[in-house]
């Protein structure tokens, strides 16, 4: 896990993508910090090159010198440098994307999330007939496939500390893989504008330990 640069109170990081509480959000946060470092380096390079342009004298202006410059600036920096950086980054991004895919496995738990203006209804194939409003129950330390859809307009299922967001679209079902490292409560919100009630269109994810999850499935717990 990557240390955070700012000391924040617990309440303040409840929707933070850079305070991951599960493997998907963690991978993405690592990607972010790495990209930030790389971007800062490239930015500095550009600034240094700009400053140097003002500190040097005028160069020669014959055709040969221009060909030389095209080698350096177009083929060297423009094509060579940018393509190398981008190719490496894209490959890494794709690799992370692969790891975030909802792959089948023995301990995968499926839950269903249905967005509407402005609430969320969750249901559980493992406990048929069981539905909860605005609270999603999951077991901790197990991969969860959230099957997301909408009954009216487009919404988006987003629990920043666990994973990225995925849209709830009427007529479609999208599957998002989430997992929580620890039992606890995680804040979720809709990430797609949906009209006047958009701001409060949130929900809570409760991750149970194994015993708590069994209790939930058998209906011993609300």
């Amino acid at each position: 896990m990557v240390p955070t640069p700012l000391a924040l109170a617990g309440c303040e990081e409840r929707l933070s993508a850079v305070h991951p509480a599960g493997p998907a959000a963690d991978l993405i946060a690592t990607l972010w910090w790495t990209m930030l470092a790389g971007a800062a380096a490239i930015f500095l390079l550009v600034v240094v090159l700009l400053v140097l342009a003002f500190r040097r004298g005028e160069g020669p202006s014959d055709a040969g010198a221009d060909r030389q410059r095209e080698m350096v600036w177009v083929k060297g920096f423009g094509l060579g440098f940018t393509m190398t950086v981008l190719a490496a980054l894209t490959a890494w991004g794709l690799w992370i994307g692969e790891r975030l895919l909802p792959r089948p496995g023995p301990d995968v738990v499926a839950v269903e999330a249905e967005g509407r203006q402005w609430s969320w209804r969750f249901s559980y194939p493992d406990a048929p007939g069981r539905t909860t409003e605005n609270t999603l129950h999951i077991p901790a330390q197990r991969p969860i496939d959230v099957r997301i859809t909408s009954t009216d307009v487009i919404h988006s299922f987003w629990v920043p500390r666990l994973a990225g967001k995925l849209d709830a679209i009427p007529g479609h079902v999208n599957v998002l893989r989430v997992e929580a490292w620890e039992p606890g409560e995680y804040a979720g919100v809709s990430g797609e504008f949906s009209g006047t009630g958009y701001r409060t269109h949130g929900f809570t994810v409760i991750a149970h330990d194994a015993a708590g999850w069994d209790a939930f499935l058998t209906g011993e717990m609300p």
């Binding site: 991004g93 990430g191 504008f193």
Partner: peptide, 8 residues
């Protein structure tokens, strides 16, 4: 993957 967090 990063866009899934940053989007919107």
């Amino acid at each position: 993957p990063f866009d899934w967090q940053a989007h919107d």
